[in-house]
Design a protein around this nucleic acid. Structure first.
Lengths: 261, 261
DNA sequence: GTTGTCGGTTCATTATTTGAACCACTGGTT
DNA sequence: AACCAGTGGTTCAAATAATGAACCGACAAC
């Protein structure tokens, strides 16, 4: 990776739980020499991708992203296309729905919708990066991606986020096969306790899987009937998005559970 | 400037009128060697700041900005702070209001609000870069910035966007002085014909002028009374923002026109 | 065919990036 | 006051990465 990539990777250190970082923090967390960090951050700052906040001189994401995001949404109105699909899915199931995208080798949550039906619901946050191995979105994307990404992801350490998280690369690899055949992924409490979710793949025009639509409910609420409904809604929503983004939805055998679809 | 800065500058080639560019376009418009462009774009693409669209292989702004923008808004809720202030200004004057920011040496429109009172109104676009010399926002920011920025901006060629655009650096410099004394800038048809606008400066905690709040109306509608109201609303809104962003509003002598404020 | 474009690649030359050590400063602790 | 551990930021020779003219294959127009 070149210098540009290294600089941009520094941006990944900023997360919703750690939105501001001092120079030494940046160096520590990235493993890059402090002097180098300083130079790179200075360049990012000159463009406005980060800014320094007085008086601590900590860095945070800068205002340049506003222009870029507005331009992106104007060029590719993903979010405005996604929203109605999510709303439909939430209204159908009564549960939270979200779309995440494969960007820069990570799964980023880009949009979500809540249903109004229940007092409890799964809460989601914008700008969140989802782990591949512990979420239905991550798994379904991984299952439909090339072996290169799979090898890279499963080669990394796989932290157990809950007692239910599967961390054995071999067993995950086996699951990916199942997911590919089924056409959707299921996750029970592997990312957060008591969250039961299903995710279906969204394909781009070239046939790559670049996103996932997921539906998540509190685990205790998932009856067999709701389960079927959630799966069907996830598949339907994902296929809608695939169509609207110019891709071709996969042909699916129609098992009993997807009759509703 | 280092490699990182050069790469990021390529992002500026993408505008709302030219949202997609081929490799050769990028090279031509930036003046950078095609091979270098290719390498830089590849690195930007790896992070997701740009993406390539099939089958033309043109580049456009990528999905990574979504995460960054969401994170930015979460860390620094500029847009959500700005919006109510803009609404207040539009309701008071019945005209469009917008806020632009100084980012990376450019003036970027970051948020706007329309009033409902009239059938005609000044239309604004998100993600637009405003010229310093031909807009009230640009002028008021320039007037309250350091001599370094002024020298740089006035040293560049100043295109005449309309017959009313002032393009003589010396005369602009003189105007900046007036603007600084008055505390606001006025522009009549210098950016777009028939648009009459006023802008007031927004200051950050260190006292730098980092943004401007502007109010724009169709020129034919600007009576002396509306004029006073627009100026007062711009000053009031700008001072509000300065306060909310942690700065200290400038003390102003209170001329007759600002009594309403 | 010929010509001109496109996106992308190659590789010797060149210029930039890199990082250990260093400074100046701040806020605790002894 | 002296000391220590931390901060953000700077220096400069050595190492490494960026650069760009020339090139390739593909496509389109003529």
């Amino acid at each position: 990776m070149g210098t540009v990539g290294k600089a941009l990777e520094l941006l990944d250190l900023f997360t919703r739980v750690r939105p501001q970082l001092g120079l030494s923090d940046v160096s520590r967390h990235s493993g890059v020499n402090k002097a180098t960090c300083h130079r790179l951050m200075t360049e990012l700052q000159a463009y406005g991708l980060v800014e320094q906040v007085e008086p601590s001189r900590e860095y945070r994401i800068g205002p340049a992203v506003l222009r870029l995001a507005a331009l992106r949404e104007e060029t590719v109105p993903y979010k405005s296309i996604v929203q109605p699909v999510l709303v439909e899915a939430t209204e159908r199931t009564g549960e939270s729905a979200h779309v995440s995208m494969l960007v820069g080798g990570r799964v980023e949550l880009i949009s979500f919708a809540y249903a109004q039906r229940h007092g409890t619901r799964v809460i989601l946050h914008d700008a969140e990066t989802l782990p591949f191995h512990a979420t239905s979105s991550g798994l379904v994307i991984l299952a439909h991606s090339g072996p290169a990404l799979q090898k890279e992801v499963l080669g990394r350490p796989l932290p157990a986020l809950t007692p239910q998280t599967e961390t054995d690369p071999a067993r995950i690899r086996a699951r990916l096969e199942t997911i590919r055949v089924q056409g959707y992924a299921e996750s029970v409490g592997a990312f957060e306790n008591d969250v039961h979710s299903f995710a279906a793949p969204v394909f781009a025009s070239q046939g790559d899987c670049i996103a996932a639509l997921a539906i998540a409910a509190p685990a205790t609420r998932v009856t067999p009937a709701l389960r079927d409904e959630m799966i069907a809604a996830a598949l339907k929503g994902a296929d809608d998005l695939t169509l609207k983004w110019g891709g071709r939805p996969p042909e699916r055998a129609a098992p009993a559970t997807i009759d509703a679809y």
